[in-house]
Design a binder for these strands. Structure first.
Length: 222
DNA sequence: CGGCTGATTGCCT
DNA sequence: GGCAATCAGCCGA
């Protein structure tokens, strides 16, 4: 372990499809979210290898008018990438230990984005296992923070353009899922717009995250 | 299996 | 100072 390249032979651009162009992201965020199911996120680390994840679960955030969005209270240094052009990665740190990755969608300045919640590792499984020690294969990228860990994504990737064929972080066409397999549900922990289903996942996929609605943490007594 | 909770840092008010 | 777009581990049934 720790020496030599991994995942190179199994990872061909052809099998994963073309890199999605910026125009793919410059659409309403719900359309982008739906079409990201089946798409493949590829992160390559020179000398280490590449890991590719085929998305099975995503969540849409609609920018300044969305109470659950990081953009709701306006632009800050942390969320600045969301207010920029589509097709860039917005990576944030949360719970003092986890990273989550979004893809900026919509028109410039709208600050909408799609959270990548879960997927299946389709290349670089060995490297993903190293990054996710102890996890069974099905759980390697099953959950937003698990997904970034498996891919090796951190704060340094915030703002990266994922539409370039030369980028170490790309999103490729992959193999889209049929509409009949796509399910929509209400988002977690949002009081407004509860009737709008902004979480999309693929029915029957084992890699869809198992987590339930988040309940506010109770303050410790004494 | 489902439910609950501690971990641990940075961001926003 | 409160809490977060989470996760893993522990507990009881």
């Amino acid at each position: 372990m720790g020496s030599g390249r991994r995942g190179g032979a199994a990872l061909t651009a052809k099998s994963l499809g073309r890199v999605r162009p910026r125009s793919f992201y410059e659409r309403p965020v719900l359309e982008v979210a739906r079409d990201l199911l089946g798409a493949v996120v590829v992160h390559t680390v020179p000398g280490d290898g590449a890991v590719a994840v085929r998305l099975t679960e995503v969540e849409a955030y609609a920018g300044g008018h969305d109470p659950a969005s990081h953009a709701f209270r306006g632009q800050t240094p942390r969320n600045a990438v969301m207010f920029g052009p589509a097709g860039h990665a917005y990576v944030y740190f949360t719970y003092g230990m986890h990273y989550c990755m979004n893809l900026v969608a919509g028109s410039d300045g709208h600050a909408s984005a799609v959270l990548l919640r879960a997927g299946e590792v389709v290349a670089g499984v060995e490297l993903a296992r190293e990054r996710r020690t102890g996890a069974v294969d099905r759980d390697l990228a099953r959950g937003p923070a698990r997904l970034t860990t498996a891919l090796g994504i951190g704060r340094e990737h915030d703002g990266l353009d994922v539409t370039s064929a030369r980028s170490p972080l790309q999103v490729r066409r992959g193999s889209p899922f049929d509409d009949a397999l796509v399910r929509w549900g209400p988002r977690v922990g949002v009081s407004t717009a509860r009737d709008v289903p902004w979480r999309a996942w693929v029915n029957g996929e084992a890699t869809v995250s198992p987590y339930r609605p988040h309940v506010p943490k109770k303050r410790r007594q004494g």
